[in-house]
Design a protein around this nucleic acid. Structure first.
Lengths: 210, 210
DNA sequence: ATGATTTTCACATATTTATGTGTGTTTTGA
DNA sequence: TCAAAACACACATAAATATGTGAAAATCAT
């Protein structure tokens, strides 16, 4: 028996969801609320397996509710529900540990399947949500093949620079003379086409050199 | 009629997939290959709607094949197939524009459904793949709430620092005296708890301040 | 084996940066 | 309206950085 707790501000939809889920074999709606203002205590009371959480709710919205729950409970599965596949919210929800993300227009049969999925450790997403997730991934900065041919020693020095070390500190930590540090850094600047420490550091971050 | 092109090195599986898909209403396997060494010309020849691409293949592997295709073609839908849900490969594939990611153990009926999904613009993923994707998201660095209370002017100056400007250049571009730049920077260092330009730049990147 | 690259160090110097201590306006929030 | 920031500027000085030139050992690749 999968214990489901529902957060949904629209009374009709809340009722509908409850009827649908509660009326199905193996599912049990333990409670439903119109906002998640008291979500933490409610969670403790009902000990659900799955949370169905609307995104757009007055008061504490779904994302905030999600965060609150995840601060104290990593176990309960959380399925986000939304009308629109709003890019920003999807991203926020997934980052904060939602287990799945469904559009409200998902057909009832699918919805039950998804709830079962998530309860058993899966991560259901409607197709359109998954499309967005993939788009986000493909928009991630490509691991730059930027090949500056830094030597091992030069990479080490650059790492120190990134960590905010002065020449003196680098010399100490690497057991070499400060003039050697200088010459390494001069070479690094040549290879990176920069001419200051901060530019080198910036480039190291931008191009993920380390 | 959905035109499917298959890349799979295992002959049994290749045959099996072809039989299954070709024998189904609305699907047509235009060709199948055991590696993607000549994928670009084959793509041109067959003009498929969907590419079924195995990840682990001798010669050019699936990820490489994917990259090759996406360099010249953003239209064709690409479904990655794999035995294991290997974290690294999933990530690489999604970053490089795969449209979906399936485990080979996916039941035939589901497989056909997924191919149909992807052909119509969806992004099918098996539940276990989706779980991994979500895990990656939740492991992304949280958008730092780091509130250093930098003033507008200070943010501008920091931006210049990140871009490798010297005090002199900043003074020029901001139409203020170099001593003013100094005092801004001193304040910035206080707020960021650093005491050098490169540390400030590094912190700006790490904490995504700009 | 040997030419190329890397790593190491030295000396010199101009520029930039970091830090301290002030002084004054202007903006902003309580 | 009044204190607290923010913004602007000045002068001074020690420290760090950037740049040049040169050169010897160690390591690598063909």
């Amino acid at each position: 028996m999968i214990r489901v707790l529902i957060y949904e501000d629209n009374p009709q939809l809340r009722e509908g969801l409850t009827m649908l889920i509660d009326g199905s074999e193996g599912f049990n709606v333990v409670a439903s609320y119109k906002n998640c203002n008291n979500i933490l205590s409610e969670l403790k009371t009902w000990e659900p397996d799955v949370l169905l959480m609307d995104i757009d709710m007055p008061g504490v919205n779904g994302i905030e509710g999600l965060k609150k729950v995840r601060e104290i409970n990593q176990e309960v599965k959380i399925l986000m529900l939304t009308v629109f596949d709003d890019n920003k919210n999807v991203f926020e929800a997934l980052k904060n540990g939602a287990n799945g993300y469904l559009l409200k227009k998902t057909p009832p049969a699918k919805l039950l399947e998804y709830i079962g999925d998530v309860a058993s450790g899966g991560a259901p997403m409607t197709s359109s949500i998954a499309t967005q997730v993939l788009k986000m991934f493909s928009e991630l900065p490509q691991q730059s093949n930027n090949e500056y041919n830094l030597s091992e020693r030069e990479k080490q020095v650059l790492q120190f620079l990134v960590n905010g070390y002065s020449y003196k500190m680098i010399a100490n930590d690497m057991f070499i003379a400060i003039d050697t540090v200088r010459s390494h850094i001069k070479k690094i600047y040549e290879k990176l086409h920069v001419n200051s420490k901060s530019e080198a550091v910036a480039k190291a971050f931008k191009d993920k050199l380390l």
